[in-house]
Design a protein around this nucleic acid. Structure first.
Lengths: 205, 205
DNA sequence: CATATATGAACGAGCGTTCGTTCATAAAGA
DNA sequence: TCTTTATGAACGAACGCTCGTTCATATATG
């Protein structure tokens, strides 16, 4: 009986979590339609039919993943929020750069799931999430401590913050997810510095 | 006899072009695995078996599309190259912004195909293309006319140019392909101006 | 014992590719 | 010049397989 119990519960994690984890690994590598429920079941160590005890359809698995990761992405402990609440913007531009790197590392699966949604579901499941982002940035600025650097009066602070973080995000996404090593012709640390330099004082001599 | 001939050759465009065009429309909306050869055949107005007179496999259709679009993307007549050769960098930052918008409009299918490749083929078919890009930017800077604005001596000109154009690209990709209208809380024209302002003189007061 | 979780065979549909056939046109041969 | 042969584009049926989902049954748990 103990033997059967061990066989039944692989590694202690509940089946639902194992299904989600397996699905995430596969959706991010083959897309939604390129991933079969058999692949997911096999990877999760559950039977094919058991999947339907937890999720009504394959698409429901996908949507659950997006929701789960969105929640984690907006969690206050995530790297970007930490960088914003520990140092004032725009003093912390380099810090934001490294936080963006950490975020892309940590959420690379979520980012790829977003691309899957953009293509295979015409961005149906994710466009609301992006709309929430600007509010998130504005709120983080409010909660940010006062600092030495001042933002020029003709610049929208939330806009500037979005500009900086998106720039870093996109750099690290290219390097990591698009697999383009050194696409700026320099190492990460140098690129972080270049971007910060440009954002602080501009390109003009 | 004439009747039969007409029946055999639909609409004048060669079958190959119709297959590519149909495939592009479908791959960008459902992904590679989500698109069947039957879908492509139906949309192109050819028989299912006829596809294999032109392409050995479904993947070969996909790769042909990427190659075709890549060639068009790097064509000297495309909006971004035009903006760079008509006005000096960094005088033309706003111009680059509008060129980026035009480019995203014109190549939205290509951008989506790239996402398909990143996810479903682990960026296998596109990462070389990105490596080429830096060279493209450096060459465009060389060919660019001399202007009034001068780049600060501690800033890599090609790096700055990439930073500007990627920033604008990503803005317009979000707006158009991710379907997030007004994600900076302002109209396109205002966003183009804000970005140019920040890139020229920086955020600091 | 009742309930919750899990299984695996089967259903009906769809998939990428192959293959034999047809047909219009071009080329070769008499 | 006319007839025969060859060619390549096009077709649609079929092959062998995979797919998402259902459902009757088995097993585990409290």
């Amino acid at each position: 009986m103990a033997k059967t119990a061990v066989k039944r519960k692989k590694s202690g994690a509940p089946s639902l979590d194992r299904i989600l984890s397996a699905a995430s690994a596969l959706f991010t590598r083959k897309g939604f339609n390129g991933t079969s429920t058999r692949d997911i079941a096999g990877r999760a160590g559950v039977s094919l039919g058991n999947i339907y005890n937890y999720f009504g359809t394959k698409e429901e698995i996908f949507v659950s993943l997006l929701e789960k990761r969105e929640k984690e992405y907006f969690d206050p402990g995530q790297p970007l929020i930490r960088a914003l609440t520990s140092t004032a913007f725009p003093d912390n531009i380099e810090g934001l750069g490294f936080a963006a790197r950490e975020t892309v590392e940590k959420f690379s699966d979520y980012i790829l799931l977003i691309y899957v949604d953009v293509v295979e579901f015409e961005a149906r499941h994710v466009n609301k999430m992006f709309a929430r982002m600007r509010q998130g940035y504005a709120a983080a600025l409010k909660a940010s401590p006062a600092g030495r650097g001042r933002i020029a009066s003709d610049i929208d602070p939330a806009g500037a913050l979005m500009m900086v973080t998106w720039n870093y995000f996109n750099y690290f996404i290219m390097e990591k997810l698009f697999k383009v090593k050194g696409h700026y012709g320099m190492a990460d640390e140098q690129a972080v510095k270049l971007f910060a330099r440009v954002f602080k004082r501009g390109i003009l001599a």
